[in-house]
């Protein structure tokens, strides 16, 4: 499968990485064993604009799937992010403190938010969207929200 699925609407192109899973809000989860790295999708970052601040809960904090685990503030909006996985925050991307724009620059790579030590990744994964399903979901969202892009 290609590395990304791409959707062009008007003058925007949105990429969906095909090696991870997504929740409806555009938070992705990529597992290596029970260590699940989480971040936001390309569509999320383009829709919400340049990130001024990104705050993730402290390492060691227990989180449940769909609980808020991070907040992103752009000049446009403040967004609370629901965690795609249950577990304990094992690491937070230190770059976010001074260079939160890395989320815009590389949402699927250097712009990751946190690593969660998953309590039951298999169960959480079953509740997340595959890249293909998220891609379709995102297209609908993009069309609905085109006015704000």
């Amino acid at each position: 499968m290609a590395e990304f699925l791409e959707y062009t609407l008007d003058k925007f192109t949105f990429k969906v990485a095909t090696d991870r899973f997504y929740n409806p809000e555009g938070v992705w989860a990529k597992a290596e064993g029970n260590q699940v790295t989480v971040g936001v999708s390309d569509f999320f970052q383009q829709r919400n604009g340049d990130v001024a601040f990104a705050e993730v809960k402290d390492v060691g904090t227990a989180v449940a799937a769909n609980d808020e685990f991070a907040t992103i503030e752009t000049i446009k909006v403040d967004v609370e992010l629901p965690c795609p996985v249950s577990g304990t925050i094992a690491a937070v991307n230190e770059k976010l403190e001074l260079e939160a724009e890395v989320i815009n620059q590389d949402p699927y790579g250097e712009g990751w938010l946190a690593v969660i030590a998953a309590a039951n990744w298999a169960a959480d994964q079953a509740n997340l969207m595959t890249p293909e399903v998220y891609f379709e979901h995102m297209k609908v969202q993009a069309q609905e929200e085109a006015e704000n892009l």
């Binding site: 062009t8 008007d10 003058k11 925007f12 192109t13 815009n104 085109a146």
Partner: peptide
Amino acid sequence: AVAKSAASCACGSGIP
């Protein structure tokens, strides 16, 4: 036709 679209800025995207 794209169902709905609006004025927007050129920053950060591309036509294939």
